[in-house]
Every structure is written in structure tokens, then in C-alpha cells.
């Protein structure tokens, strides 16, 4: 599906914890997939801001994103009101791959839960067995919607046990790079495929500026890949983490 520049309307803006806002945006965008993201114009900043798609209601064409307050751009977006216009490019990037008969473990660390919630919904619609575990630093940071929520400790603390107990065949994750790296290493050790949704500062969000490059080892060769266009979803085993 082609990416386009949309002007949407805020249907709902809701503060869901101490620094995260949920935005429902209605527009003419009629399809998108989990793993993909949108790039939102912040008129007070030079660059657009990328956000994972957290949900999409096809019938009403409502897109949901979660906005964690980080700086002036996100502060501006959190100040929008219902009915306000919002300018975004969507859908962007690749998406998660599904496997019909595999048990999936979804791991969301912090705000990285956003694409995992959408992935879980899409898996449920396809009757794919899945288990979403999420981790947050403190109670006031928790975002609801997981099968298991860990507060305080690391989301990875009991991960190997869960993988074994639930007969996990494939892992999906989004969160800080250190979590994605460690999880990829665990998955490699257990010989389970692991898909990670990466985040980088982006300028163009459509693959031309080469600003959000990561290095992958593919076909025994190290090469550059853009998080915005080639990703944001990559196979953890291919990512050159350091």
C-alpha cells in the first residue's frame, strides 16, 4: 500500500498514565498493518515524529498511536484537543510476519508495547496463539493490555521460563535497544526466530535521507538498512548490535 500524506481529525485524546497520551485519529487512511508507523507533523519542530501504530479500526478508519512525552514535539501533540487537525504520513515501513501454526511471544518494553498491542489484536483475529508480556519501570508508567505485566524488574527476567512453558516458536518485540539485543541473543540461543521493531531518529521517514541507518549482516555481508523504509521490523539475528 502506498504511503500518503493525510490530514486527520483527533477523535479522542486521553492521558493513560503519567506521561503517555493515547490519540485516536480519524482520516481517510483505510488500511495499515502492525509494525508499521506514522510520521506526524509537529509545527513547532523541524522534523516529523514517528509513532508506531497501536491500533487501527478499519470500519471507522480510526488510527491509534501512543505518545510518550519526551520533548517539545510530543508536548505539542499532547496539547491537541478533540476535533483538532493532525497531519501525518502513513502507512510507513514494513510489518510483522505471521505464522499460522506457531505460538508467538510478544514482548513490549515500556512504550514499546504500542506495536505489540496492535500485533496481538491482529493475531487474535487470525486465531494465532500469542502471549504478550510487557515491562515498565514503575506503577505510574504501566500501559494496560498485556497478558502479563512486570513492574520494576526487567521484562526479560523470566523470559526463558515463559518460552519453555508456553512452547514458544517465534518472538516479536519492541522497546529499548538493549532489551531487543538481549532478547535476540536469548532467541538465538534457543534457536527461535525473533522479530524486533527498531527505533531511530528519522528525518525523511521514507528511506531517502539515510539518517536512520542500522547495520545488518545479510547474505554474509554487512550493509546499511534504513529503519524507516527497510524496517522498522528486522530479524534480530541479522542486526549488528554494536
Amino acid at each position: 500500500m502506498k504511503s500518503k500524506n493525510y490530514i486527520g481529525k483527533i477523535k479522542l485524546i486521553e492521558k493513560i498514565n503519567h506521561d503517555v497520551y493515547k490519540l485516536d485519529i480519524q482520516s481517510s487512511l483505510n488500511d495499515c498493518k502492525s509494525g508499521q508507523f506514522v510520521s506526524v507533523l509537529c509545527p513547532n519542530k523541524t522534523l516529523r515524529r514517528p509513532f508506531s501504530i497501536c491500533d487501527f479500526d478499519k470500519e471507522n478508519k480510526i488510527l491509534t498511536i501512543l505518545i510518550k512525552l519526551k520533548g517539545e514535539g510530543t508536548k505539542y501533540l499532547s496539547s491537541l484537543k478533540e476535533g483538532d487537525e493532525i497531519n501525518f504520513i502513513a502507512p510507513l515501513g514494513n510489518c510483522f510476519e505471521f505464522f499460522k501454526d506457531k505460538n508467538a511471544l510478544l514482548v513490549g518494553a515500556g512504550i514499546g508495547i504500542a506495536p505489540m498491542l496492535f500485533l496481538k489484536k491482529e493475531m487474535n483475529e487470525r486465531n494465532i496463539n500469542n502471549y504478550l508480556i510487557s515491562g515498565f519501570k514503575a506503577d505510574e508508567e504501566v500501559i494496560e493490555g498485556s497478558d502479563e505485566t512486570i513492574v520494576g524488574g526487567s521484562v526479560l527476567d523470566n523470559i526463558e521460563k515463559i518460552i519453555k512453558e508456553k512452547n514458544i516458536d517465534v518472538i516479536y518485540s519492541c522497546g529499548p535497544i538493549i532489551v531487543l539485543k538481549m532478547l535476540s541473543q536469548i532467541a538465538k540461543k534457543l534457536n527461535i526466530p525473533c522479530y524486533v521493531a527498531m527505533e531511530r531518529v528519522m528525518a525523511c521517514s521514507i528511506g531517502v535521507c539515510r539518517g536512520c541507518i542500522i547495520k545488518l549482516v545479510r547474505d554474509n555481508k554487512i550493509d546499511n538498512f534504513s529503519v524507516c523504509k527497510d524496517g522498522p521490523v528486522f530479524k534480530g539475528e541479522e542486526v549488528l548490535w554494536d
Binding site: K45, T46, L47, V201, M202, C209, R210, G211, C212, I213
Partner: peptide, 14 residues
């Protein structure tokens, strides 16, 4: 890092 946003501009080191 290849991109650094500044007030009304952008620093790149692609």
C-alpha cells in the same frame, strides 16, 4: 548519530 534536530533546522552527518 546522523541526524540532529535544531531550532528551525537540521544537522546531518550522513
Amino acid at each position: 548519530d546522523r541526524i540532529f534536530e535544531v531550532q528551525n533546522g537540521l544537522i546531518n552527518r550522513i
